[in-house]
Design a protein around this nucleic acid. Structure first.
Lengths: 340, 340
DNA sequence: CTGAAAGCGCTTACAG
DNA sequence: CTGAAAGCGCTTACAG
């Protein structure tokens, strides 16, 4: 049976066609008990004849929930974001929840617009990789009972759940690894220290130096933009001069990639440990040694936490830190050239 | 002003607080003209005092649309899916549309469940990377006016828009590239030929052989599962024996990766061209020659098409094929060993 | 076993 | 300039 495009039959249409009340149709559609077999059969026939399917948006409006989670990433096209998102999706699936997904593109303004758009749709919960540093705009939503969990970076200026990587610990371990292999001049190439993860990783680097009794030398540290040209210039600075770096610790994936692309130009490539893993890292020569994060764990635990909050957990905001894993593959185990 | 958690003020609450009618609140909230300045001010004060924010789900129910697109990928965590999804997101953003996202995990059953769940929420349109081969379950939705566009693979058993890669052309070009470099024994490692993309790429491989007057030899073709062990075994078969392959064409990313991991074991690594690009492909040694697809283009064009349909385009279903690009980086330009 | 009425939070169509 | 009534497509609470 064909109806004109755009015209969907409703429960009312089914009720009329079957010659029953609206509520009886609702009972059949939702498999509620207490409908005579014959009545149910007529209703089902009408449903099939009209091609009826329940409008879940209307249903959920009446029920006062949306069975929907908002997932706000930095950039869905980025492997870290998408793997994290995949883990959130898997947990959400087990809870019969659909997912609104959006990317902030690292723009606080867009983060806010999207987060509030999700809330305006009345998502039951929000999992957010924040970009901005002031999340007071979410206070009314939190007060209204929306569950919000921050991932990868903590919330700014509000108290909220956060699931984070042990950034400082990871950077400390990666730097210590280079020190253990004989390096004393270790360069750090990182994000802007205004970014939470950037600052934490720099802190870990400094801690490792201090642990080993090495002094912190600002000339070995470059933080800023992560495009190829900027990183290449910073690299030249760190490995040039009278007392150059013999090893590098790179503070994130984009920087690691830029360094890898710039390394072939150098006569004496430094040892290298990168923060965060890359898909083909083991196939490079030498293999790329990294401090690996756990994006799956971040997403899974954040999603589990947001559902726990939705289930009524009213404990004070939690901060969970996931450990990193050092994966030695060759690039981080080279001895310093000057040490030979 | 704090309310008890879970209790959101509605327009009715605002109207009561401001001492005006419901419709006046609606006018102020939606910036409609025709409200006296003083009245509007009182309403805005009440909105601020109560912390009101409009429920867009309720609004959209009344308006008969959802301003939402459903995006069904194979696996959001996979780079191809996520890059394609990012392009869809960007187009959707320009149209003020939110995105429901889900992954079929290559399971037809799950694809169907998710697609129908999106439709039950009454998404305005659906962009779907199909896994199943029978999409008649979408006929009622299409009849009801939901815009549906298939990406990467065409729909099965229904007529619908499809935005595809020129799989056969790409595989043909990649294979011809190897032939041009002197190879006469070229192995093909591919997906199951039941999969659309797998079959098309095998077809392109055969066409290139025919173009060059080379005969098709089944002993040089392996199709099936794409896990490491299966691919490694197939590789051994193709490069072993009396008349081995001197070059390989790999039919997708997972296979290319598995081959790269297995290659170091071989005494005489064959030349290699892979279908689909990898992030670090240029940093391998030798660089990996690939036939690159355009996941951004696929997503963007599919999204533009779905919006055009939503805008009322009733032309017959379209099939759009995007070209591939051959990127020579070293692995595909090695001459055959036996030719030396 | 069945269904009429009210309501979820808004907008639409209309009247003053 | 303002607002009461009806309605979007369902469920809830209740009465028979």
């Amino acid at each position: 049976m064909t109806t004109r495009p755009g015209a969907r039959p409703t429960m009312n249409d089914v009720a009329a066609a079957a010659g029953v009340g609206l509520k009886t149709v609702s009972r059949v559609v939702n498999d509620e008990p207490g409908v005579a077999a014959g009545t149910a059969e007529r209703v089902r026939a009408a449903i099939a004849a009209l091609g009826f399917s329940r409008n879940d948006s209307a249903r959920l409006l009446r029920q006062g929930r949306t069975a929907t989670l908002g997932l706000l990433l930095e950039d869905i096209a980025d492997p870290f974001s998408s793997v994290l998102g995949g883990a959130v999706e898997e947990i959400a699936r087990g809870r019969e929840s659909l997912l609104f997904t959006g990317s902030s593109g690292a723009e606080p303004q867009r983060e806010r617009e999207l987060a509030l758009a999700f809330c305006a749709r009345r998502v039951d919960g929000l999992v957010i990789v924040p970009t901005g540093t002031d999340h007071r705009y979410l206070l009314p939503e939190l007060a209204a009972g929306t569950a919000v969990v921050f991932v990868d970076r903590p919330a700014g200026r509000i108290e909220a759940d956060a699931v984070l990587t042990d950034n400082a610990g990871g950077a400390r371990a990666g730097t210590a690894h280079l020190i253990r292999h004989g390096h004393r001049r270790i360069g750090f190439l990182g994000d802007l220290p205004q970014l939470y993860t950037g600052a934490e990783r720099l802190r870990g680097y400094r801690e490792a130096l201090a642990d080993a009794g090495l002094r912190y030398d600002q000339r070995l540290v470059a933080t800023g933009r992560t495009d190829q040209a900027t990183v290449a210039a910073a690299l030249d600075r760190l490995v040039g001069g009278p007392d150059p770096a013999t090893a590098l610790f790179t503070g994130n994936n984009r920087i690691t990639l830029a360094v890898l692309r710039a390394l072939p130009r150098l006569p004496h490539p430094p040892a290298l440990v990168g923060f965060d893993d890359l898909e083909l890292a083991d196939l490079l020569s030498p293999g790329l040694t990294v401090v690996a994060q756990d994006p799956v764990g971040l997403g899974r635990i954040a999603a589990e936490l947001v559902f726990r909050r939705m289930d009524g957990d009213r404990e004070p905001p939690r901060r969970i830190e996931l450990p990193t894993v050092l994966l030695p593959r060759g690039s981080g185990e080279a001895a310093p050239r000057t040490g030979r």
